[in-house]
Each structure stands twice: as structure tokens, then as C-alpha cells.
Simulated scan of single mutants.
Amino acid sequence: MPRQTRQERYNARPPRQNRGIIFFIIIVVLFGIVKIAHGTYKSLSDTVTNSYQKANIKHRRDVNTVIKHKKPLSILLLGTDTGELKRTDKGRTDTIMLVTINPKTEKTTLYSIPRDTMVAIPGYEKDFPSKINSVYTYTNISDTVNTISNYLNVPIDYYALVNMGGLEKLVNQVGGVTIKSPLTFTFSADTAHETGKHRYKFYQGSSTFKYAADGHHFKTYHKMNGAAALAFSRMRYMDPNGDYGRTQRQRMVISAILKKTASPQMLFNKQFMHSISANVRTNLTFKEMLSIAGAYYQAKNNVVTKSATEQTVMHNGVSYQVLSRSEKQKTTNQLRQSLNLKAAKTGPIVAGNAKKARIPFDIEMALKE
């Protein structure tokens, strides 16, 4: 498939446009690498070490004890809208997934948190309302993990932060993916809308799609390369389910990648491994990956996807997703149950100090429902 260069994408990018959509599959890092690591310790250790980044996370429990006793663990997956298109700024975490892995039930849960979720960022309540995807922009990785953990009252044991270059490179490394689209839509990689160059046409219920580099002369394809998977995952404005629909497509790509990485041949591929390490930062050490390999590996065969039900609220012309107190409690209940933890009250309604945020009456009513 003809593929635009980074320079072409950068030149075509409208100023200040949010190109945010990229995520990385921590399940590949966790369940793929560790399964074969015993036989290739040195080379894999060097590769994984390149991804390691310590974070000052306020752990709610002893992570070493969790792994030692084979208890369910959690990983916060964050995808930033940078790393491609010559974008080197810090960016926002446009993809937020809390992954829980339960070795007892042999189940992995991918819980999506919409990027537009309204919050008051701790320490920056004066800027309320903010979106949860900007917590990282205002603070750092440690504060981001701590904020989300406190917001939902759920322990977060590890994190994985991935830049925008990760998805496209990873899909190319696995040889492309085949996915049936849940809806029919047209998307331009240049404009993030239906018109423009580098247009893709996806069709509901079909894995066949069309692509036109000039935006007009389409050719038919049956397998997505990295650029196509990125386009398939990025579209939001034409989806009747908005960001919920987009996170659904993200999870479909995750599942497709999982299937392709199941073979030892792929995981022994040094170029594939380098692609992982070059685009992800995590506080999972290689030793920790090895120690959890046997007990958690089977959980990758039963992947459940969930997302909170939020309502759209407009404030000063900006659209936000509001998680009411009752829905927020439901989310906390589900996550704690997946971690085999006792039920507990959910965290602060807007993450930060509500009094300092000076929440308007109409928003306060939406939050309290």
C-alpha cells in the first residue's frame, strides 16, 4: 500500500490539530516476551531494559507480595498523541486503559476511560474543568498514575506509556492485521475527517477496505498495515458512539495484534522486540516480567473489554464526558472485583479538590446523579 512519509503528514497537519490516538499492547509486553524469555535471557533483558522507567507511584499495596502470591494485578496503559508527525512535545494521553489480569479466573480485563472525562486535576483545580487526558500534560507519569488510582480508588501496580509511533510500527512488524469493521466510514489521515488525501474507506462487517493516496483513486486491500490500522483506530467524529466507538476499535486492533504475536517466531524477532522497546516506557522490570510469566500467561486467552457509561456535557463550547457518582461507583466496583478486592467507596468525584474547583451548578448536578 502506498504510504505517506512523515514529512508529508507533518506538512498536511492543520495547526494545533489533535491527532491523538495511539496505544500500545502491554499484554504483548507482559504475556508475549515473558513466555519465551527463559531461553533468550540476555538479548531480551537488554531489549526490555531500554523500556524501563522508574516512577514514584504511591502503591496501595506491596507489589512484590502480589506477584509472589499470584494475586490479580493491574497495569495502567497510556497512549500519548506524540512521537510521530515530527511531534516531540509531551502530548496528552489520548488513550487510557486500566488493564487487570486475574490468574485465578484466567481473565484479562481492558477497561477504557474516555479521554474527554471531566476532572479537576490535583494542584490545578483553578483550571477546572479539565479533561483526564491532560493530567499527564499538566503533571508527570507518577502524578498521572496516582491521580487515576485515587480517582477510582483502585490500586495501580504498573504502568506503560506509549508514544504515537508505537501502533503503526508494531502492526507493520507483525505483518499487518485483519479486522472486520464495526461500521462504515471514510477517514482521511491528513484531515481526520472524510475529505482530504490519504483517504480510507472501511465497511461494516467486512475486513476489506479501500485506500487512495490522492484521496480519489481507490485501491482495495484485505489486510491493514500500520498506517491503515492507525487510521481505523483514530476516527472519532463520524462514529455515532463517539469516543466509545473509537475505544472499541482500539481494542479490536489489540486483539488482532495478540493473535499475530502468539507465535514464538514473532517474539524471537529482534526487530519486533526493538519496535516494542523503542516506543514504550514502563516500570515493569525484566525480572518482574519473568517472575509473573507462568502464573499470568493463560489470562491472555480470555480478554474482556469494558467502558464506563458517561454523559456528554457542554461547557463554554467544549464537550466533556461526565462520569456521575453512581456510574463511577459502578466502575470502581467492577475493577476491584476483577482484582479480587473488597468493595469500597469510589474516589473523589472530580479527582481533585471539588471545593477548589468551584464546580458550576449544572455540572455539579450531572456529577451527583
Results as ranks from 00 to 15, higher is better:
V174L: 00
V177R: 04
T178E: 15
T178Y: 00
K180N: 14
S181P: 01
P182Y: 12
L183M: 15
T184A: 10
F185N: 06
F185P: 02
F185I: 07
T186H: 09
T186E: 15
A189R: 07
D190A: 12
D190L: 00
D190N: 14
D190Y: 14
T195L: 10
G196I: 00
K197H: 13
K197V: 12
H198R: 11
H198G: 05
R199F: 06
R199I: 13
Y200Q: 11
K201D: 11
F202W: 02
F202Q: 01
F202P: 05
Y203W: 08
Q204R: 15
Q204G: 04
G205F: 08
G205K: 04
G205M: 06
S206Y: 12
S206T: 02
S206V: 00
A213N: 10
D214S: 06
G215D: 10
G215C: 04
H217M: 04
H217D: 14
H217G: 05
F218C: 03
F218G: 03
T220L: 00
K223C: 03
M224D: 04
M224Y: 01
N225G: 09
N225T: 07
A227Q: 10
A228S: 12
A228F: 04
L230I: 01
R234M: 04
M235Q: 15
M235G: 07
R236V: 03
Y237N: 13
M238P: 01
M238I: 05
D239W: 05
D239E: 08
P240F: 13
P240G: 12
P240Q: 14
